[in-house]
């Protein structure tokens, strides 16, 4: 989905604070949210990491931006445990004494029918072009590289295709590629000529550069 989480290149944020000697968690509930997520994924197997990322992406935009990081974790975890039928929202509301927050429902991707191969289609040095794609559900191809061309620096091993695994679609694993884009290709002449951005992209996001 072309959501608020896909922040790369967006303007208007201003500066950010660096906290020295920062604790891992700022409030006890942040650690509770983190541990509940780890236990739900790693010990219970209630959902996978791609479903988790997407549950956060589905937060309402106006809640996503001001939320603390572990607040997003908490809302994502709550959403998935309710959606999976493990917990009941009305029960959680009673326990909290107020309405717990959950994300908006998912709009699942459909299988794009692209050919799948476990042998890499591209190799180091190849010029590749990022497909102009806008799946309604989870994807990991940022908007800022769609339609742009870059050069393959590295071929990484096979990993689950997230656009499918976030929605329970069957799909085998694909290679990902570290693709270097010239900053000027992405951001025009305002960027430095020597600068580059490397994005790690699944094979289905790529085609041969025209």
């Amino acid at each position: 989905m072309d959501g608020i989480h896909d922040l790369g290149g967006m303007a208007g944020f201003g500066s950010f604070e660096i906290e020295h000697h920062e604790p891992t968690f700022h409030e006890p509930w942040e650690e509770t949210a983190f541990l509940t997520n780890i236990a739900s994924i790693a010990m219970l197997g209630a959902y996978n990491a791609d479903e988790y990322r997407h549950s956060i992406e589905r937060m309402p935009i106006n809640e996503y931006l001001p939320a603390r990081y572990y607040e997003r974790t908490l809302i994502g975890v709550t959403t998935l445990l309710v959606e999976k039928g493990l917990l009941d929202k009305a029960d959680l509301d009673r326990r909290a004494g107020a309405s717990v927050r959950v994300s908006q429902p998912a709009v699942a991707n459909i299988d794009d029918g692209l050919s799948q191969s476990t042998t890499p289609r591209f190799t180091v040095g190849d010029r590749v072009h990022v497909r102009n794609m806008h799946p309604p559900g989870h994807t990991r191809v940022p908007r800022y590289v769609r339609g742009h061309s870059g050069t393959v620096l590295h071929v990484a091993p096979l990993f689950k295709f997230p656009d499918a695994s976030a929605h329970g679609l069957p799909r085998r694993k694909e290679c990902t590629y570290h693709v270097a884009f010239k900053s000027r290709e992405l951001w025009s002449e305002s960027a430095e000529a020597e600068d580059t951005v490397v994005v790690d992209l699944w094979e289905s996001y790529l085609e041969e550069s025209p």
């Binding site: 409030e27 509930w29 509770t32 209630a46 908490l74 509301d93 909290a96 717990v100």
Partner: peptide, 22 residues
Amino acid sequence: KIATPAAQAAAVKSAMLESGHL
């Protein structure tokens, strides 16, 4: 009323423990 993060985190954890899921 909207739950605070602290109240929501406690609610989810207690529900997961009492249900035996975790």
